[in-house]
């Protein structure tokens, strides 16, 4: 069964009198345990599509079913619930709470899920251990490197065991070596059975994925499966 099924989605932004067609007519199905890279030039609608998939935004027209349930008919509260339980976001700019330590940042979605204090602390710490930050639990974002910050954000996305991880240019603010390490982490997460959709505009990053969707001017240009799997050279850094 597919997790995501969108048909003929369009998104139009009104800027003054002008209309911006961020997405024109996009249809896409994504199955469980897929690893999809979305590529395309700047302004092609990648982020708009991701926001749509992540139930942060609603399409101007078209159909969106998440696990077989129509999203367009959902109330604000139901959308918040889906975002909380089913979706894990990873942003280019990390979006961590600056004054809170790693554990509290990772705990955040569990607070909104109503998980009791002791359990959520335990789960947050486990998630941080899973992304390799065992000895950075009490560090605040400004005491962490860029790569470590993104790991905290990834732990935050994983901690609720979501159906899907959405990452919008997760390596965009990192140097290429750290970027590779983060991609290695995503690879590992995928291996554990997670579904990942990842936006990037760098070919070598996209090579990690099993499927590449290319956008241009709000339309899907190509949608291809990659046969040869990229084997991370940096596996050693992940083994712990």
């Amino acid at each position: 069964m597919n997790i995501i099924n969108i048909e003929h989605i369009a998104k139009i932004y009104k800027v003054g009198l002008e209309e911006v067609h961020a997405l024109r007519d996009v249809s896409l199905k994504i199955d469980k345990n897929e690893y999809v890279a979305i590529m395309g030039p700047s302004g092609s609608g990648k982020s708009t599509l991701m926001n749509m998939l992540g139930c942060l935004d609603t399409p101007t027209s078209g159909k969106y079913e998440f696990k077989g349930v129509s999203v367009s008919e959902m109330s604000d509260n139901e959308l918040a619930k889906i975002r909380n339980k089913e979706i894990g976001f990873v942003f280019q700019t990390f979006n961590l709470l600056a004054r809170s330590d790693a554990v509290h940042n990772v705990e955040l979605p569990l607070i909104y899920a109503g998980v009791p204090t002791a359990e959520r602390r335990e789960r947050a710490i486990q998630a941080l251990i899973d992304v390799g930050l065992k000895d950075r639990l009490r560090h605040k974002p400004n005491e962490l490197s860029g790569g470590q910050r993104q790991r905290v954000a990834i732990a935050r996305a994983l901690v609720t065991n979501p159906s899907i991880i959405l990452a919008d240019e997760p390596t965009g603010n990192l140097d290429s070596k750290t970027g590779e390490e983060i991609m290695g982490l995503f690879h590992e997460i995928h291996e554990k059975g997670n579904t990942i959709i990842l936006v990037t505009h760098e070919e070598y990053i996209a090579e990690h994925a099993a499927r590449i969707v290319r956008l241009k001017d709000g339309l899907i240009e190509s949608d291809e499966r990659v046969d040869k799997r990229y084997i991370p050279k940096i596996k050693s850094t992940l083994a712990q």
């Binding site: 942060l56 619930k81 975002r83 976001f89 979006n95 709470l97 955040l108």
Partner: peptide
């Protein structure tokens, strides 16, 4: 925005 994205209701 972040809080809403990870599930905070209005």
């Amino acid at each position: 925005g972040l809080r809403k994205a990870i599930g905070a209701k209005r």
